[in-house]
Every structure is written in structure tokens, then in C-alpha cells.
């Protein structure tokens, strides 16, 4: 399966929608037609989706996306009922099934703002997968913890740090290796803490938080 997927994902370039199974095409059309949720309400009323991915290596252009794990925070809380896990290295699915699973993620996320650590890295893999596999130009709103954390918790660090350093500073480090979902849950907890801090700094809506994330990324990259 992995090889088949590789052929599709990493050699073929953008896939023509005509080759997609009918149900996938229909679902994608529905997804495109849905309106993205408003981002001007308080964080508590915004559903964020925290995501982490598993890859075969660091380069989005060459390495494979092996899986993703996501949890939704519909009201600032991590809800077990609002979670999603996709393992692409499993060998039990045919191509149509893989198409359906990737599409299912789009339906699950429902255009909510995505929260992750090192947004460009995650975005790169997702963009390529959705492009090559489904012909979708995946451009969600990103909240990047890697850049936001030093921006909002500058008393802890002024510069970007490896994730584990942040976890340790916040005292929420678990022991041992984490799988993708465990990592996502850690990110979600950092994000919960960050939301409280952001609200305190009058970054009270998702829209503002996304702006802040973009600004932090830009400023810190360039200055």
C-alpha cells in the first residue's frame, strides 16, 4: 500500500479530479461549498483543530506523509469525541479508501483553524498530499505554536525552541517517546495555556490569534 500511495502521492503531480471516485468528488465539492467558520468570536466559541503529522523524513517535497492525528477544541477543552487519527502506513486500504480517508479529514476539520508546531513543515506535507492525491489546494488558517509561544511567553524564551523544551518549561512533559496522537495532545495542552495568555493580552479572537501567529513568524524570521 505504501508503495502504491507513493506512486500516487509523490510522482504523479496534481491529480485530475476526473480520476477520483465519484463519492470523493462529491464530498470535495460539498467541502468546497461549505463556508469557513467565522473567526471573530471569542476563543471559547471557536473550534480549533490541533494537528500533528508523522512523516518518513523532514522534506515535504520528497518524504512521505505517514499519518496524522488531530483533536478538536470546540470550547477550549480537549474532547475525546472530537478527535481524528489517520494512519497511511497501514496496509489495509486500497487507493479509493485512501482518497476517502484524506477527504474525511477535510470534512472532519471543516475549515477550522489548524494549530500545530512548525506550521510550514506540517503545511508543506499536507499541501502536497492533498494536491497530488485529491487535487485540492489546501490552504487552511494556521496557528503556529513554535512562533507564538516565544511571542506570548517571552519571559520563558524569546526565541523558538524545540517542542520538548517548551513542554519541560511548562511542566507537562511526559516520559519516553510519543506517538503522533500523544504529540498532538501535548500541543493541545500548550495551546490551551496559550489561549489563556492570549486572551489576557487582548488577543481575544481566532482571527487576531492567526494574525499574531503570522506576525510572529514574519517578525522573528526577518529581524
Amino acid at each position: 500500500m505504501v508503495f502504491g500511495l507513493k506512486d500516487f502521492l509523490f510522482k504523479g503531480g496534481a491529480r485530475s479530479p476526473a480520476n477520483l471516485p465519484e463519492d470523493v468528488r462529491q464530498a470535495l465539492a460539498d467541502w468546497r461549498a461549505t463556508k469557513a467558520p467565522a473567526l471573530d468570536g471569542p476563543h471559547f466559541h471557536t473550534r480549533y483543530v490541533v494537528i500533528d503529522i508523522a512523516t518518513s523524513g523532514p522534506r515535504a517535497a520528497e518524504d512521505e506523509l505517514q499519518g496524522l492525528a488531530a483533536v478538536g477544541l470546540p470550547n477550549g477543552a480537549i474532547q475525546p469525541a472530537d478527535a481524528f487519527a489517520l494512519d497511511l502506513s497501514a496496509e489495509d486500504a486500497d487507493d479509493a479508501a485512501v482518497d476517502r480517508r484524506l477527504t474525511a479529514f477535510l470534512t472532519y476539520a471543516a475549515k477550522a483553524p489548524l494549530v500545530t508546531y512548525h506550521g510550514p513543515f506540517v503545511a508543506g506535507f499536507l499541501q502536497r498530499a492533498f494536491k497530488e492525491r485529491l487535487g485540492v489546494d489546501f490552504q487552511p488558517q494556521w496557528v503556529d505554536l513554535a512562533w507564538l509561544l516565544p511571542s506570548l511567553f517571552h519571559e520563558k524564551s524569546m526565541v523558538t525552541l524545540p517542542l520538548d523544551d517548551w513542554l519541560e518549561m511548562f511542566g507537562i512533559a511526559g516520559s519516553g517517546r510519543r506517538d503522533t496522537m500523544a504529540n498532538t495532545l501535548m500541543l493541545a495542552r500548550l495551546f490551551q495555556m496559550l489561549l489563556v495568555r492570549a486572551t489576557g493580552k487582548e488577543i481575544a479572537t481566532a482571527g487576531k490569534l492567526i494574525e499574531e501567529s503570522q506576525a510572529a513568524t514574519f517578525l522573528r524570521r526577518n529581524h
Binding site: 463519492d23 462529491q26 478527535a83 474525511a104 496522537m181
Partner: peptide, 16 residues
């Protein structure tokens, strides 16, 4: 698609 989404949600929920 709905079936796939349900399964993957369940998988996610199980891990959480």
C-alpha cells in the same frame, strides 16, 4: 465518506 470519517474519528477518540 461518512463511514470513513466515522472510523477515523473513532480511531482518534480511542487514542485520546
Amino acid at each position: 465518506i461518512g463511514q470513513a470519517e466515522m472510523e477515523l474519528r473513532q480511531q482518534g477518540s480511542r487514542r485520546v
